[in-house]
């Protein structure tokens, strides 16, 4: 029941131009044309960010898998180097996000890229832990997310050559929560390789993180309280592993330890969520 006045106004060649009954001349239609463009621009940007976020997630996950191999390889430098290269690639992608977000309210599109960023935090903090045996700080992460714009961009518009991306504290927190799952896996697999020290270090570290999360409790974002549950489980497994090592480590010959733990992990694994 549109007004079929059929005035032959020149119509802009937009997607919706095929809407025959649209009266393109009225102010209302003119206004909606503007809204259409505005919404499309916004949705397009959102989609691009989602895609970048997915790429970041995939590449970060691969890095984490790669890093899990350090427990079974004598020379770790090679693997760490490779992980560094991979993470550099991820950082470039984050640079693209920063590029998309330039001049925008970063929280407007936060939902689009938060999964990727969390995964990146997880990967980067895992690597940091393997190297330094400590928790990477938010500043350290953000310090590496400073991007220089490429030459030709700079030529176009002078000023603002440096682009930064800030990981929000809650993204950092959620990334660290995911990290604990990886640490638990690392602990179990290092026992499997006859490494007796790592599990104890890990349980110490996990306990610190767990205490930190309990300190924050439910004042944090909603997801944190969910992850706290998984964190408890991970901590429990690691503590159990350390307990078994202490009690039975002196009794069981080293080469058999692997069998003890592989049977344990088989029992534990099914309840582990996707981390």
């Amino acid at each position: 029941m549109n007004k079929r006045q059929g005035e032959g106004c020149p119509r802009k060649n937009t997607d919706a131009a095929q809407d025959e009954s649209a009266n393109t001349c009225s102010p209302v239609m003119a206004a909606f044309k503007v809204f259409q463009q505005e919404l499309d621009v916004k949705h397009d940007k959102y989609e691009r960010l989602v895609k970048l976020s997915r790429d970041i997630t995939i590449e970060s996950k691969r890095t984490i898998f790669l890093l899990h191999r350090v427990t079974s390889v004598p020379d770790t430098t090679e693997i760490l180097k490779e992980a560094d290269t991979k993470l550099d690639g991820v950082r470039q992608k984050i640079g693209q996000i920063a590029e998309e977000l330039r001049g925008e309210d970063i929280y407007q599109f936060h939902r689009a890229y938060t999964p990727g960023i969390q995964e990146y935090v997880e990967a980067v903090s895992f690597l940091h832990y393997i190297r330094q045996r400590s928790l990477i700080s938010l500043e350290e992460i953000n310090a590496r997310l400073v991007f220089m714009r490429s030459e030709k961009d700079v030529a176009e518009s002078a000023g603002a050559q440096v682009l930064t991306f800030q990981v929000t504290p809650s993204d950092y927190l959620l990334g660290v929560a995911d990290l604990t799952g990886e640490l638990m896996r690392m602990c179990i697999s290092s026992v499997g390789n006859g490494d007796i020290d790592t599990p104890f270090q890990l349980s110490q570290f996990l306990r610190q993180i767990h205490d930190g999360f309990s300190y924050i409790g439910n004042t944090g974002p909603y997801e944190v309280s969910k992850k706290l549950h998984t964190l408890r489980q991970s901590l429990g497994k690691v503590e159990d592993a350390c307990y078994t090592l202490r009690v039975r480590g002196s009794e069981i010959p080293k080469h058999m330890l692997a069998d003890v733990f592989s049977s344990r992990t088989a029992l534990i694994d099914p309840e582990e969520g996707v981390v």
Partner: peptide, 12 residues
């Protein structure tokens, strides 16, 4: 009706 055709322009 005018409003309706306006909204139909949008890709929601």
């Amino acid at each position: 009706n005018e409003l309706d055709s306006g909204f139909r322009l949008l890709n929601l």
